[in-house]
Design a binder for these strands. Sequence first.
DNA 1: ACTACTATTAGTACCAAGTGCTAATCCGGA
DNA 2: TCCGGATTAGCACTTGGTACTAATAGTAGT
Lengths: 187, 187
Amino acid sequence: MPKKERQRQLGLLLEENPFLTDGELSEHFTVSVQTIRLDRLEGGIPELRERLKTVATRTMKEEVKSLHSDEIIGDIIDIELDKKALSIFDVTTDHVFQRNGITRGHHLFAQANSLAVAVMDDDLALTVKSTINFLKPVKAGDRVVARAEVKKESLLEKRTLVEVVSTVGEETVFTGEFYMFRTTDRK
Amino acid sequence: MPKKERQRQLGLLLEENPFLTDGELSEHFTVSVQTIRLDRLEGGIPELRERLKTVATRTMKEEVKSLHSDEIIGDIIDIELDKKALSIFDVTTDHVFQRNGITRGHHLFAQANSLAVAVMDDDLALTVKSTINFLKPVKAGDRVVARAEVKKESLLEKRTLVEVVSTVGEETVFTGEFYMFRTTDRK
DNA sequence: ACTACTATTAGTACCAAGTGCTAATCCGGA
DNA sequence: TCCGGATTAGCACTTGGTACTAATAGTAGT
């Protein structure tokens, strides 16, 4: 196998499995350890321990992110319990269809739904029913601002209607009506 | 500081920052490196390189998972393009409210929405409007089976209605109507 | 006061997985 | 045949450890 091809494969291999030592790599390519070292040097590929460090760092960041973003999608900026609330959600390439770059609907829904849950002054509010409209496609890089407003309450049925309108710049991209169920009694 | 307290703090510290060497730790607690080693030994805490390895391993797994689970939430089991499709989604503790253990609505929506997109024989199908009902709370450990059925099409408007019914065991937990927009013309 | 015990510290040899450097060897082409 | 790139080998040194032994300090028990 020519040198160039070996180095290409080395890069790919380490990308998908950064845990391989030079020794293991040398066996895989049936060359000496020194050759592997030279290959890494030329390709600018760091040693095993550095690779693990960066991969591990990535994890720690992701964990913080996913913890945040799973609990409430979007950052809540302002909230008046039982009245209204506002959150922003920055769309990244993680949230879009690869094919056309348009945000997957469930992310917009998730932001709106999370906000509807948060605006209710109730630990255990649940969504019962919802009608939603996706008005304009949202792309990666867009900042989606969701505004939730508590519309009416039926204390008897423990139900509340929350309306959410999401915008990007001046344009409304999403609207939703969320019928929420209150599990605890009001004060 | 008593030994016990130091060891407790050591554990907490390394949990949130696994990148610290024994040397750095010894400075932090102003004890010798050897004491740190003994503390790790007694607490069953592995060395830096082992810690990074496990953290990095976790990442690689997560990455595979999130790639899958972001593209389509739930595993598609069966699909007849333009007719019907079926997916399952195993709820874990990651998907529920901490307070009451009930699945966050947007996960059920995401499964249904993904399935509605998938069943359309169209690369770029988008959700336009949707009405959904959360009928029964879903808990961690439940296996949610979503069935999507293409109801009617309006070729002129390029719109299609897809109905999704999600069940856990015998019980229907979620229903949704998804009005989908077809971006490419039918053959 | 002497002993026992615990916690801490120091020091040694060793290991894995490297870097950095020098030197030797092989192999193909002008 | 001689040159040059590619490969291999060898050695000293580095990090961040393990494993083990030994010394020291302080404290409680009798």
